[in-house]
Computed example of a mutant assay.
Amino acid sequence: MPDVKFFSILPTNANPSDRVTRVSISANLLQDAQQYSVNFVNSTDCTDNITYHFKVIIATQTIIENYKRNGEWSSLQKDTELNIFDDSSFCLEFVFDYANSMMHVYQGRDSGHNFITKYETLFSLSDIQAVQVWGDVQKVSQFALSYN
């Protein structure tokens, strides 16, 4: 398994109007990159519970969306093929829809943001404590949080 390339703890706010509503990540990939993933984890020191797992397999242009509960990956994995991914970098925006327990994903482009997918999560989005970037990532060049 590849090492974690980037890790950030999300701020926690008791007031729902002060919660993180968007996470934007831009990164450069290693030469001949095969895959990368972004995990929204429910603990800062353990990956047994992952609210949302977003993985890109570059060669097949496949997105894998999933969650992990008590150390076990869900059998409800969602695979989508899209011919939109670059093999040298990525710019993704994850939008938290707390009311519907949905994660919406957009790809950043010079001309704006393009919708990629949405995923209904098993856990509450409020359970997310940290974000991890895994895989063939050379460097995360931007990490930004937005609030209501």
Rank of each mutant, 00 (worst) to 15 (best):
I63S: 01
D48G: 07
A59C: 10
P16D: 05
L30S: 08
L30H: 06
I25E: 01
K78E: 13
T12K: 15
R69W: 14
K78N: 12
N49T: 08
I25M: 02
K68E: 00
A33V: 00
P11C: 05
I58D: 02
V23I: 10
F40S: 03
S74Y: 05
P16T: 07
I58F: 01
N70K: 15
E65M: 10
V41I: 12
N70Q: 13
S26P: 07
K68H: 04
S24W: 11
D32T: 09
V23Y: 03
C46T: 09
T60R: 05
S74M: 02
V56T: 05
A59F: 09
N15M: 08
S24R: 15
V56E: 00
A33T: 00
L30G: 02
T60E: 05
S43M: 05
Q31A: 14
L30E: 09
Q61F: 03
A33P: 02
A59H: 11
I50S: 02
I63K: 02
V23H: 02
I58A: 04
V38F: 03
N49W: 05
N13F: 11
W73T: 07
T47D: 14
E72R: 11
P16I: 07
D79Q: 15
Q31L: 13
I57N: 13
E72W: 10
N39C: 08
L29P: 04
K55V: 01
R69D: 12
Y67R: 04
A14L: 14
D32H: 10
S26F: 06
L29I: 01
Q31P: 11
T21H: 10
I57Y: 13
D48N: 12
V38S: 03
I57D: 11
W73A: 03
D18C: 12
V23M: 01
I63Y: 03
Y67M: 08
F40N: 01
D45H: 15
W73F: 09
D32A: 09
R19H: 11
N66E: 06
R22G: 07
S37M: 01
N66P: 06
